[in-house]
Structures are given as C-alpha cells and as structure tokens.
Design a protein around this nucleic acid. Structure first.
Length: 872
RNA sequence: GGAGGCUUAGCUCAGCUGGUCAGAGCGCAUGCUUCACACGCAUGAGGUCGGCGGUUCGAGCCCGCCAGUCUCCACCA
C-alpha cells in the first residue's frame, strides 16, 4: 500500500492531475447524439490580462457547473477564449512604445498592429495558463480569440447584415470622447463620479446695447463654441429678449437668443449658453433652432477655433478664459457647485462630449426582442432581480456608438468613394466603389467597439455564420456566468445580437455573481494596491482551497470580501479529507468498492445521511445554489464522516471479527468514494488524486457518474435511532467536560434504556466515544445511585461511577435545572398544540414534529424525575 | 431624480417557496501527546435576527414606514 504523507501538498498534485486530464482528452466535448449537450461560453478575459480574483470567481462557478453536468452525463462543452480588448490592449502597447520614446503614429498602422500581435503572442497564453492552474475544464481544442478568422467573419457578417437592414448607420452625434485614449466611447463605457466644481455666472451683452443676459455654466472654456443662448419660452423674465442677439465675450461673436422648452427656469439664471458641439442637450437644441456648430476642442481636448486660446489644454483654457472674463468685467459671480463628471472606464480621464461622425447601432428595433425574451422568461436571470436592471436599461437604451478611433480591433468594413461619395459596406474587402466602380476608395480607418465582437461570442465561437455541426449541436448555450458589472456591456448585447442573427436566445440562464472585495469591503484594484493575486493563493493553499473559499460564504449576486484566512480554512478542509483517506487506506484490505451485505446501525446512519446529502446537493446545484451545496458537503465530510463515522468504525477495524472488519472497510470506502464524487466539481484536484489512489473502476473521477439519490439507501428509522445514541454520547461527553474529567480517566457506563438493542449494538464504540471502561446496557435502574454521576436524555438514563467527583446536592440541583428547562420546552410546545388554529391549519408534518417534540420532552422529564427521585 | 441591495454571534457571512432557523468559518474559553489529521479532537460561552407597526395559528423570512450603509441608472447648463 502506498504510504501517504501526513499533510496534503497541492503542489505535488495539481499540475500532475491537470496534465493527466489533458492527456486523456477529458475536457473535449464530443457531439454525441446519445447525450444532451450542455454548453457554457467563457466570458473571454482580456488577452493580455492577468488572472485576478474576479476571474477566479467567475471561472470557478463555471467549472463547477460544467463538471457537474459532465458527470451527470451531458456532453458538456465549456468554450474558452480570450478577448482582444481593443482599448485596454492598445493602451498597453502604446505605453510600452512610449517607454521607447515612440507613439503609434511613428510606427504607422501596420507596424503598430504587428507590435500588438507580438504583444498578444507574448502575453496571450498567460491567462490561459492561469485558468489551467485553477483547474478549469475548458475544451481547449475549441479555444477562440475574438480577432481570429472565425470571429472576424462573424463580425463582418453581422455588421453588413445590420447595415443592410438599416440598423447600423453613420451620423454626426454628440458622443463621449476620451481625450487620453483619443477615441469615442459608448455610453456604457463612461463612469460618472461626483466632483467638486464651480458655477460661473457670465455676462453676455446684448448686441443692441439694451442690456445683457447672464448665463451660468460649469464649463466656461466651452463658451468659445457658443452659438446661442436659450431661455424657456414661458419665462416672462426673458420673453422680450427672444429673437434678439447678444455678443459672445472674448470672441465677439454675435449669437441669437432662442426659446426652448429644454431650459429649466428654476435652475441657474434661466439663461443657458448653447454649445452644440460640446453638450448633448445643446446639440439637440441647436438642431431645433438651426444654431451654428463650432467645434472648439480637438481629439486631445485642446482648444481649436478659439483664437488666442488655441492649443491650450481644456483645463488651462478654463483658467485663462475665467481670468480674461474677470478682467473684462464679464464675470458676475462664482458659486461652488458639485457635479457629475463622466470619466473613461479604461483610463479614468474626464470624458469630453464632442460632436463627431461615428457609426451607431440603432437600438430601438433590436431592444424589442431583447426585452421580450426576458419578460417572457425565455432568458432568466439568477438572481431574478437582475432582470429588472437589465430591462430598465433596455427600455431606455440609446443608440450604440460602435466606432472607435483605434487601430487594434475589427476595422470597420466601409469604404468611402472619393469620386461619388458613396459608402460601400461589404463582406469582402472592397476594391472598387460598388456604385460608380471607381477604385479611388478608402477604407474607414476606425475599428469596432470590442464589445461588438464579444456580443457574438455565443455563436461566433461555434463557427457561425457557417452552419457548423458544433453550432447545430451546442447552440444555444445554456448558462452564462458573469458579474453584474457587465450586464450592459455584454449580456444585453449578446441577447439582442443573438435574437437578431439566430432568432434564438443565446442562453436560457444568466447566472450573475457579485464582486470580490478586499477585507475592508473596497473594490480591489491595481492602483489601490489592495488586490489579492489568485495565483499566489493557489501557490500557498492550493487551487481547491481557493475555489472552495470563493464558492462558499457568499450568495448569488452579492459581493463578498476576500479573506486569506478563509483560504487557510479551506486548505485545512482539503487536509482533513486527505487524512480521512489516509485512515481509510491504511485499513483497507479490499480492492473493490461495494457495500457489504450486513450493515450495522451506524453504517445505515451514514449511508442514509449520504443519501440525503446527494439529494440536497443535486437540488441546490440545479438551483445554482453552489455555496449551499458546497457547505453541505463540507459539513458532511467533516462532521458526519470524520468526526463520527470514522471513529465509529475503529472498534470494528481494530477488532478480531473479520466480517465486521471488512464490513466497516467497505462502507468507509463506499461513502468516501461517493463523497469525493460529489465534491469533485468544487475541489477537482484533491478528489481526483485520492480517487486514483483508491480502488476504482474507470479512468478518472472527472467523468464518473454524479451520485444519485437511492430509495434503497434511505434508512430514516435507523438514522433516527442512531441519533439517539449520538445524543447519549454527546450528553456523556458534555457531562464529563463540565466536571473536567480527562478522556484518559475512564469510567464504567451504565445505560438504562428501553431501547436496549440499539445501545447494545453500539457497545464497542460507546465505550470508545464516551470514554467508558465498560458499558452495561440495562432496563433496570441501579439500586444505589451513591457515587454515580447521572446523565439523562429522553431515551436513556446513564450512570458513571465517579465517586470522588460526585456531590449529590449539586447533582440534584443540576437535574432540577434540566428539569425546569425541559418543562419550559414542554409547556411551549403544548401551548402551541393546544392552539386549535395551529393544529387545524398548519401542515401535518409540522404538527407531527411538534407532537414528537412534546413526546421527547415528556420522556426527558420522566427520566429526569425518576433520577431525581432515586437521588433523593 | 429613479431603481435595487445590505443591516443576523467579537469579525466576515449563510439562512431556499414563512413552521428544528437561530447557523457556519475565523476568533474566544476550558480540557485533550485518543493508534487519519494540532492544517487536529472534545466541550462551551456569545445574537430580544437595525427600529416601529401590520398580515398570519405562526415572521430574520411577507407588507408598510423609519434609520444607517452600499451600488446601479439618469444627469439641470
């Protein structure tokens, strides 16, 4: 027999086991017509990213689900892959270039893209390798990249398809512009944070010299782009001014005063400066009143078209302009004013609203189906509350700006004709204008939003638009697992994209989880330096421990704090399993896993508990209650199997009765194997390692059948009977602990009970677990209780001769106390049972349970009273 | 402005459709060189489940109000 070390060392195991799985091809999902498919696509992490705890959480949940389904006999496919992550990746490469004193423009598009591909090839495998250390059972044969050929084809198809349907258009709108990333962003990519600011009141003199209007603004520098002043048409203070013009200070431009409902009379001065090119509302007002559009900020947010201010950064310009206004007597007053500023979700620079020509996806028609499938329950969110968040967003969704002024990404398949001005949008790269045939065409330099390609992920990864066998078999996918923070970015867009292209929802369930935070509840981030590296955790405690830590102690959709100590606790759990196995193996003389014909009471107890566990765990997993399932297995292994059952088998294993010995071994092995199988999706490495060492049939645990509830192994009566023995043992231990009797001090144990057979059969382990030198089971009360310590339960009265420790007076006092407690309990229960309403309206089982409680309390009281009488 | 979450033992959190639901881990106390494990074993202390009302035979669990806290959406210049 193999000698196992005393402590489990994941490092010796995990890599070896993973390699074995890989070699065996167990991650690969076959299109098996005999099986039902179960598919998950991974939320593709950034190709050059590193695994953080958020990933670890996400991937662990998916791995548990996929392993569970695989073991249940599904053809379980987990499609892995990575995302090209347009902005994020481009920024990283540009930073690297900056270190060399270069910009992307120095290289030019082609060379720059070569650089990015190099970067991708250099770091692209890192996160994949990290996923493997976590134990992810992805089908690596099907790994995809959002920029590979298959995905590119899907992107091209969808773009052209939507364009042809009029659902993609190009237009001049106010978009969110990041001056640092120098690209447009979608609404979803802007994060708002409240920042302190000022509210400047500025005097705009009327052109006719008859007075002035005072406007209030938080962005004085944008006045360079002002082409009007708006007031509310119902604002009597200003009606006489509508139609007049005023002079824009510093610029000396004559601009009209217009009336528009948009203006809030209550706010500020009621006069609003209109900057159509740099404010979304002003843009709309400008269109309605035909105001001129003057762009005063360039892509880096430096002033243009602003005379002497040209070239100034927006913040410098603000200072200069405020000073000049003040010097010129135009500044009326300045107020403190906190307001929300949009920032780039990637670089956190202030986002600039700028009028710009961009490509958009028209959302209203697409949102319709995306709303319907969730409202109709074709796509369910777990927990359900996230469907409200999703729907609310979808109801109010605005057109999606999809063009990005980047180089890294899917370049937009649009060619502009220099001759006729026509735009050719095409699945194949265009050589000539489709309208006039001119070859004088130029491709749009912009690329698509990264999320445009991830939106197609559930079907592009399976080969769409080709009708591949994979697509046929594995689509639609089943569950999408992700954090609530990317519902809008990704989940929503996958749903409407799939509905438009596939006419079928991409998945039936969206399983949402929360964020992992630091012990203070703060978001983990690189800049705050409070991030915990999952790889380090795996290194220190093992992947299984990390996984178990992440799975337990939280509930679906809620954030959780990460405690290293919890990893330690889970490492201890792994060690516990390891040692339980050591125990079983060092007593093992059989090489086949089968139950014995004769089962002892304690065997039936543990088998029945196991059976219940199987039922509950399966139910919990089916309801996505992974944490609850995991905790139940934990407590079964630790509390039931290790703390009780193993101890119970020791007398048999160490005894001379060969049949009993074998019986105990068999049950030990059976229960251990079943439990390992149950636990495998959560702790794949240690369970596989142990399973391999135990007698088994089949190649690997990871494809064994998941345990199923069996009517044959339900022993409710025996379970209950054994619990009464346990209660007796606990009572004795508690009594001894109370009196500070060390385990080494044994005492005879006399058990007076009506259920002699139950206690009789447990004689051996009773003596062990209750530290008895000898056990006597009887129906008779001992004649003389002098010098006996008494322990009373509802099923037994027990006596231990520990004369030197016994103080009769104290004994009596204690029993009277217990008696009072029992009486209180009885009164409570009887009171309940006396309630007509309760008895008639509560479910039968509940009433029966109460009656049972009453019976037990009665029995206990009776026992206590008898003992008390005897003592006196 | 709108929506939602959270408030349960010293700490961090579980508690599924209202009836063993008052729990877990860590921490704490006491005692254990018990032949798998001190990354352990046994025993124990500790909570009027944020507050106030209501529904119900029965409420951490449902409803309303209040307080604290966090988040998301919208974004009045």
């Amino acid at each position: 027999m193999k000698e196992l070390p005393k402590t489990y060392d994941p490092k010796q195991v995990e890599k070896k086991i993973y390699d074995m799985w890989m070699k065996g091809g167990y991650f690969h999902a076959e299109r098996d017509p005999e099986k039902k498919p179960f598919t998950i696509v991974i939320p593709p992490p950034n190709v050059t990213g590193q695994l953080h705890l958020g990933h670890a959480f996400d991937e662990t949940l998916q791995d548990v689900l996929i392993r569970y389904k695989r073991m249940q006999g599904y053809s379980a496919l987990w499609v892995p892959g990575v995302d090209h992550a347009g902005i994020a990746t481009q920024i990283k490469v540009e930073e690297k270039l900056r270190g060399e004193g270069l910009t992307r423009f120095d290289l030019g598009r082609e060379k720059f893209l070569d650089e990015v591909w190099d970067w991708k090839n250099k770091f692209g495998d890192r996160i994949v390798e990290q996923l493997k250390t976590l134990g992810c059972s992805c089908d690596w044969d099907r790994e995809r990249f959002t920029m590979d050929e298959v995905c590119a084809k899907a992107v091209r198809e969808v773009f052209v398809n939507l364009y042809e349907k009029g659902l993609i258009y190009k237009g001049k709108r106010i978009i969110n512009w990041c001056p640092h990333c120098t690209t447009a962003l979608s609404d979803a990519e802007v994060e708002y944070t409240e920042k302190p600011g000022h509210f400047w009141h500025i005097r705009y003199p009327l052109s006719d010299g008859s007075g002035e209007v005072i406007v209030a603004t938080t962005r004085p520098e944008t006045m360079l782009g002002d082409t009007g002043v708006a007031v509310n048409p119902n604002d009597e203070r200003y009606t006489h001014l509508v139609g007049k013009t005023c002079i824009l200070p510093l610029v000396n431009r004559e601009i009209p005063i217009v009336a528009d409902e948009y203006v809030d009379m209550e706010f500020g001065t009621g006069c609003v400066k209109m900057t159509p090119c740099h404010d979304p509302n002003d843009f709309e007002v400008g269109l309605r009143h035909d105001l001129e559009q003057v762009l005063v900020l360039d892509g880096e947010a430096k002033i243009i078209n602003g005379g002497k201010y040209n070239g100034l950064d927006r913040y410098e310009a603000r200072k200069a302009i405020v000073k000049d206004l003040e010097d010129g007597g135009y500044l009326v007053k300045v107020e403190e004013h906190a307001h929300n500023v949009g920032t780039c979700y990637r670089c956190h620079s202030d986002v600039e609203p700028i009028a710009s020509d961009q490509w958009f996806v028209k959302m209203q028609p697409l949102a319709k189906e995306a709303i319907r499938v969730v409202e109709d329950g074709e796509v369910k969110f777990v927990p359900d509350r996230f469907s409200k968040i999703y729907l609310n967003w979808m109801y109010n969704v605005r057109d999606w700006c999809i063009s990005r002024q980047l180089w890294w990404g899917h370049q937009i398949p649009a060619w502009y004709c220099a001759d006729c001005g026509h735009t050719t949008v095409s699945r194949e790269d265009a050589a000539v204008c489709e309208k006039c045939g001119s070859s004088n065409i130029e491709r749009d330099p912009d690329v698509l939003d990264t999320w445009f390609s991830s939106a197609l992920w559930p079907f592009s990864t399976l080969g769409w638009p080709e009708k591949t066998p994979d697509l046929e078999y594995f689509y639609p996918t089943d569950v999408l697992v992700t954090g609530y923070d990317i519902i809008f970015f990704w989940v929503a867009r996958m749903i409407f994209s799939a509905m438009e292209q596939m006419k079928v929802p991409p998945f039936h369930t969206v399983f949402i989880h929360g964020l992992i935070r630091d012990p203070q509840g703060k978001k983990m981030s690189k800049s705050a330096g409070n991030g915990v590296d999952p790889i380090e955790m795996i290194d220190r405690f093992g992947a299984d421990a990390l996984r178990f830590n992440i799975i337990t102690g939280n509930s679906p959709g809620n954030d959780m704090r990460f405690y290293v100590e919890r990893c330690e606790a889970m490492r201890n759990f792994a060690n516990k399993i390891w040692n339980a196995t050591r125990f079983v193996m060092m007593n093992l003389t059989i090489d086949k896993n089968e139950l014995p014909e004769k089962l002892e009471l304690e065997d039936k107890w543990i088998l029945s508990k196991l059976n219940t566990l199987i039922k509950e765990v399966t139910e919990n997993l089916d309801k996505y209650e992974l944490g609850i399932a995991a905790e139940k297995i934990y407590s079964f292994i630790w509390d039931s199997y290790c703390d009780w059952y193993i101890e119970l088998t020791k007398p048999r294993l160490n005894g001379d009765d060969q049949d009993a010995k074998l019986g105990a071994q068999k049950v030990l092995l059976y229960v251990l194997t079943e439990t390992l199988t149950l636990l495998h999706p959560f702790m794949p490495f240690i369970t596989e390692e142990i399973w391999q060492a135990l007698p088994h049939e089949g190649e690997v645990l990871m494809i064994q059948k998941y345990p199923e509830y069996s009517e044959k192994l339900a022993y409710p009566a025996e379970e209950e009977n054994f619990e009464t023995v346990m209660a007796a043992i606990r009572a004795v231990r508690a009594r001894r602990a109370e009196m500070n009797v060390p385990p080494s001090k044994k005492a005879k144990l006399i058990i007076e009970t009506d259920k002699t057979d139950i206690f009789e059969s447990g004689r051996a382990y009773l003596s062990k677990l209750a530290y008895a030198s000898d056990v006597e089971v009887t129906k008779e009360t001992p004649e003389n209780l002098d010098g006996l310590v008494t322990v009373v339960t509802d099923e037994a009265k027990m006596y231990m001769p520990l004369a030197e420790l016994v103080d009769i007076a104290k004994e009596i006092e204690r029993i009277e106390k217990e008696l009072k407690k029992a009486n209180d309990e009885l009164a409570r229960v009887q009171n309940k049972l006396a309630n007509e309403n309760f008895v008639s309206r509560a479910p039968e089982a509940v009433v029966a349970a109460e009656r049972d409680k009453a019976d037990k309390a009665n029995a206990l009281i009776e026992n206590l009273e008898e003992t008390l009488k005897a003592l006196k």
